[in-house]
């Protein structure tokens, strides 16, 4: 995977919690499109409209704190988000992103430089974030996590690699 991912930025502040990303009342669904309709609903229709028109969510520190709900990542995927970049992530949100196939990149300098409505591009293999023609480095993903992302998340990864092995072992 050498191609770059990215696009238009929607930028948020520090401590954005998962109740704001996707309110608990919508957790009855696991459909990305359905969830996306309600993503960031507490912040109002204007923010939601901008979310749907964006490809990269940029956050401050502790992005995605709060509940372990995986739908926070799923809702962003449904809204057409290709990557999330932040100064730092809450650990469960970070895991949920990787496990649902959504690249989550910790890069404080790039998150700082990013402007709402501007462009953000990521080269995941090289560990380079590009914001307004400036390059920022971030720690590239370890091979194991890269495999998960490439497969499209943990469940597709298991379907593709783990189960066939188990079946073969059983003979």
């Amino acid at each position: 995977m050498t191609e770059k991912i990215g696009g238009k930025i929607i930028k948020f502040g520090n401590n954005v919690n998962t109740d704001v990303i996707i309110p608990g009342r919508y957790l009855v669904s696991i459909d990305p499109q359905e969830l996306a309709k309600h993503a960031f609903e507490p912040l109002g229709a204007e923010v939601q409209k901008r979310l749907w028109a964006s490809q990269v969510v940029v956050g401050g520190s502790n992005f995605g704190c709060g509940s372990a709900r995986e739908q926070a990542a799923t809702a962003l995927i449904g809204a057409g988000i290709k990557a999330v970049v932040a100064k730092s992530f809450s650990r469960v949100f970070f895991r949920n992103c990787i496990n649902t196939g959504l690249p989550a990149v910790e890069c404080p300098e790039a998150a700082e430089a990013a402007q709402d409505g501007g462009d953000f591009w990521l080269d995941l293999d090289a560990g380079i974030a590009t914001v307004q023609e400036k390059n920022f480095r971030f720690a590239a993903f370890p091979e194991s996590l890269k495999q998960l992302l490439d497969a499209g998340g943990l469940i597709p990864y298991i379907a593709k690699y783990v189960l066939p092995q188990q079946r073969a072992a059983k003979g």
Binding site: S67, A68, R69, E70, V92, N96, N99, T100, L154, I158
Partner: peptide, 26 residues
């Protein structure tokens, strides 16, 4: 546990941590 407050099990000397449901299924 697919609930963030799984940290509570530390009260009994266990290591409890929250994960998403895909990970739990895995």
């Amino acid at each position: 546990g697919s609930d963030s407050h799984t940290t509570i099990y530390g009260a009994l000397g266990a290591f409890g941590t929250g994960v998403g449901f895909s990970e739990l299924t895995a």
